[in-house]
Amino acid sequence: MGDTLVFQGKAWVFGDNLDADWQICSLETLAELRAGGVPLTAEELGKVCLQPVDPEFGRKVNLGDFIVAGANAGASVACLDGDPEDPHLIGAASLALKGAGIAAVLCESSNMTFLRNSVHHGLPVVECRALRGRVRQGDELRVDLARGAIQNLTTGESFRFSPYPDFLLDMIRVAGLYPQLKNASGSSGT
């Protein structure tokens, strides 16, 4: 079996300032789901992920695909990244991307709250400035998280990024902070 930190999939390309609160997981959509009594799970959020930008996205995306964004991915003018009415729903944008099956977000730079929430939800956000203009919609990509390598299999180009430290790679391996803490508190025997 392959390493759990190596991903291969198709690129979905977006521009700069892809917004967490209004585009990735819009607050209006969250309010509609809540009013409709839909449980706000990753799976349900995945279906409406990026709806304001591409209403069909949740249906078209395949498990293991990548978001390729520009500068300031996960931007958040409102600084919410979640639902202010629901303290459980922190990092709603990251949850929605995960629910949609996204393997990783590749970008030039990112909003740090979005990056932290994503990693803690087990979704890698990779910053790599050299990517600008080098990936087209639908290109096949291969990402090795531990080695810090991106290959565009469609064009044959390769890119390097500085990999996460081991403790964050471990967190991504077990799918996030909460599972990791659950394992830790469960195995302590207390």
């Binding site: 990244d81 932290r116 803690h120 902070l177």
Partner: peptide
């Protein structure tokens, strides 16, 4: 600074 999910840590 701000903390989000990581407040748990």
């Amino acid at each position: 600074t701000n903390s989000a999910m990581d407040a748990v840590l």
